[in-house]
Design a protein around this nucleic acid. Structure first.
Length: 191
DNA sequence: CGCCAGATTGACT
DNA sequence: GTCAATCTGGCGG
């Protein structure tokens, strides 16, 4: 079952937490790729020093005007995949940091050019490559099937398996944990 | 058009 | 564990 747009119209931290265990579905021609989300991070608007909203431009607009849309942008020679998620009148998004390959693993290995399962999708840049997510998905809604990329309800993660920590790789983090991951999952990018 | 910073990755001093 | 490659986006000129 596909997740409706309203799901994303809430605080980014809540959305990030609840996205754990959900499935990313990607249709590539006749192939179908499915991954379970195991690690996410929440980003806010201009009040967040790590948010691209601070820099203005198109990304800031996506963070504020879009809800339930993909925000794809490049850095360190790869793509980063976010979903715009925030309450009315503010800005924010959820970064998908890692996921677990469920279906279409062969295809992902080909796209990633590796046979190491652990390396397939255990990192924000890696999972984009494994799922063939690029700039063309920027600003496309993930609550419809039309574009070949959407999020579906998946496994319910018991709350005692949901961990939180500070965000990874962020120079200036906020004073509270905004990274969420499934405890003990093999594909979480970092403990 | 050039400059700079950054939510990373993969190869190996 | 350490380190440098190399890309995108925003901004100034």
């Amino acid at each position: 079952m596909i997740i409706p747009m309203e799901f994303y119209a809430r605080d980014p931290a809540i959305v990030a937490k609840e996205l754990l265990g959900m499935y990313i579905v990607r249709v590539l021609g006749s192939k179908k790729l499915v991954c379970k989300i195991v690690e996410t991070e929440a980003y806010y608007g201009v009040e967040d020093p790590a948010s691209r909203a601070r820099r203005g431009g198109d990304l800031a607009r996506a963070l504020y005007d879009g809800v339930g849309i993909a925000i794809v942008y490049g850095m360190h020679r790869q793509w980063l995949f976010n979903i715009a998620a925030h309450e009315e009148g503010s800005g924010g998004a959820v970064l998908i940091r890692a996921c677990e390959p469920i279906e279409g693993i062969e295809v992902m290995m080909k796209l990633r050019n590796t046979t190491r399962l652990r390396d397939l999708t255990s990192g924000p840049g890696r999972l984009c490559k494994a799922l063939a997510i690029d700039k063309s998905f920027h600003w496309k809604p993930v609550y419809v099937e039309k574009y070949g990329l959407w999020i579906e309800h998946g496994e319910k993660i018991p709350s005692d398996l949901v961990c939180e920590s500070y965000r990874i790789g962020v120079k200036q983090d906020l004073d509270r944990p905004l990274r969420f991951y499934i405890k003990g999952n093999y594909f979480v990018s970092k403990l």
